[in-house]
Each structure stands twice: as C-alpha cells, then as structure tokens.
C-alpha cells in the first residue's frame, strides 16, 4: 500500500511539474534569461561601437555610485547619477501622488454611479489608451506650448500678457506623466471601491461619522489594496519613463530612463547602461518592499 501510494504521489508530482512547465519556461525565457544577460554585461567592458568586450571589469558598477573625475582621476560620489536618480524619484513620486489625488475622486465618482453608467465611465477612462502614447504626448505639447491653446486662450482673455513657459519644464513632464498613467491609478482604485459594502458607509454614518470621517475612516482604509496597486502601477513605469522627458521636458533634464537609453545608444557603453538599469531595478524593488510592508502593517487583512 505504502509503496503504491509513493508511486502514485511521485507520478502526481511529475504531472504537476509537466503542467506548470509552460509557465516556468515563460518565466525563464521572458524574465530570467534577459536579466542574466544584463547582469553579465554589467561586468564587462564596452565594445568600440556599442556591444561589449568579454573582459571582466567592475568599472561599470563603480561608476554607478562614484565618478572617476574626468580631470584628476579621483573617485567621488557621483553627483550626476545621484542627481538624475533623485530627479527621477521625485518626479515619479509627484506623479504618483498627483495621480492619486486626481484618480481617487474619479474612481469614487465612477464607483458610485449606477452599474449601467459605470461601464460607460470606465470605457471613457480607457479611451486615451486607444491612441499611441507619442500622439497623446504631442497633443499635450500643443496644449501647453507658448503659442499653444492654453497660452493663446489666457492671452486673448487678458489674464496674462506674455505666454507662460510651461513646455520644457518639470511641470510639463509631471503633467504628461499624470495624464498618461492616470488610468492605471483609477482602475485598481475603482475596483477596490466598487467592491466596498455600502452598508459599511451607512454604519459609519449611523455611528456619528460625518461624510469626511466616513471617507477617512472607512472608504480610504478599505480602498488601500487598490491604492497600493495603483501607486505601484503608476510609480514603476513613471520612474523608467523615456519619451515624456524628451518631448515635454525638452531633453534638458533627463530622467534615469533616458540616461540608460543614452548608454546603449550614443554613449556606446552597454556595461554601464546594464549596471544602471540593474541599480534602478534594485531601488524600485526596495522601495516597493518598504511601501508594501508599511501599507500592510497599517492596513487590514482582507481583500
């Protein structure tokens, strides 16, 4: 009996492995293998016209944190890298916060419509996704440039006499990022709000909670999983963003995504680009862990 059972469980486990093997294969091919390539590259030296030379070097990693001074060869903490990284972090954090500030009320609005209208509103939220990102970004450019729609309107109505320089500023980058990633905040927040039991809100109101307190004590805490998911969905692509800083920021203030792209293009320094992108990954991962753990300790345990 026992041996029969052992055989059976062995074949069962084999079947199980067979069944999950496509998934494992996808993970290996899609995630692990490219990552390994990047890790390898980061420990090599740059080839003469892009690519890599197969000689071991820690130079790329050293340069992530330190600058070997161009002029006297001393190592100092890399101001350039840190500044670019800091800007990327701040811009993507600002984007996340703004997305939340705009997205939460929007999601709440949709979640409180009647079910038939909700679908229409949700559809409208996703409409921008039907258009190419570049086209949308160019549209924003046209809105905010000096001879653009907003400045023209403001001048014609006499609010201002000189156009306001909005294009090619950090404001423009932030605006573009918020516009592009807003749906990624609205949808998960909506999902968590839509699931909320209306009777909980009535119960809170019944127990002397004014509308603002209902929001603060019940709606927001219960929407936390959605808020966390939305923030992650916005923050990660925002910090790696590449098109927006060029088109709306005018390329004067680069974000880490452009910096990495440059290393693989004109910079011809693939090892450094690899090291930078791995460093970015690590930072995002640590930030997420801290964020999620923090969110957990204060949040509730139910979905």
């Amino acid at each position: 009996m026992a041996s029969l059972e052992a055989v059976r469980s062995k074949s069962a486990s084999r079947t199980r492995w067979l069944l999950i093997s496509p998934a494992v294969l996808v993970v290996i091919i899609g995630a692990i293998a490219p990552l390994l390539v990047i890790v390898t590259y980061s420990f090599l030296t740059p080839g003469p016209t892009g690519g890599v030379n197969y000689t071991l070097s820690f130079d790329a990693w050293t340069r992530v944190l330190f600058d070997r001074d161009v002029f006297d060869d001393t190592l100092t903490l890399s101001g350039t890298n840190l500044e670019i990284l800091l800007r990327s972090l701040l811009l993507s954090l600002a984007t996340t916060v703004l997305c939340l500030l705009v997205g939460f009320p929007t999601a709440y609005f949709i979640a409180t419509r009647n079910p038939l209208n909700r679908e229409v509103w949700l559809l409208l939220v996703t409409v921008p996704f039907w258009t190419n990102l570049l086209i949308r970004t160019f549209a924003i450019q046209d809105l905010i440039r000096n001879e653009g729609i907003i400045n023209t309107l403001l001048i014609k109505t006499g609010f201002i006499s000189e156009p306001i320089q909005m294009l090619f500023t950090n404001f423009a980058i932030c605006l573009g990022l918020v516009y592009v990633y807003l749906p990624l905040m609205i949808l998960p927040v909506y999902a968590s709000l839509e699931r909320q039991d209306r009777s909980l809100l009535e119960a809170a109101s019944d127990l002397y909670a004014r509308p603002f307190n209902v929001l603060r004590e019940i709606i927001v805490p219960l929407a936390k999983p959605g808020i966390i998911a939305g923030s992650i969905l916005v923050f990660i692509p925002a910090i790696g963003t590449y098109v927006t800083p060029i088109l709306l920021g005018g390329g004067r203030n680069l974000m880490i995504g452009n910096y990495i792209e440059f290393q693989f293009g004109q910079g011809r320094d693939w090892p450094f680009g690899s090291a930078l992108s791995l460093a970015l990954m690590a930072i995002v991962m640590v930030a997420l862990l801290v964020y999620i753990r923090h969110g957990d300790s204060h949040g509730h345990e139910h979905g």
Partner: peptide, 18 residues
C-alpha cells in the same frame, strides 16, 4: 444619520473589517 441619537444593528452587521 450622523446627527440622530439613533443607532442601527444591520442585517449583515456591517462590522468594519479593518
């Protein structure tokens, strides 16, 4: 409701899960 000295026990209890 938040200004009425009347409280309710809801059918599904509506306890705050968090």
């Amino acid at each position: 409701p938040f200004q009425r000295p009347i409280n309710t026990v809801f059918q599904n209890y509506a306890l705050f899960p968090h």
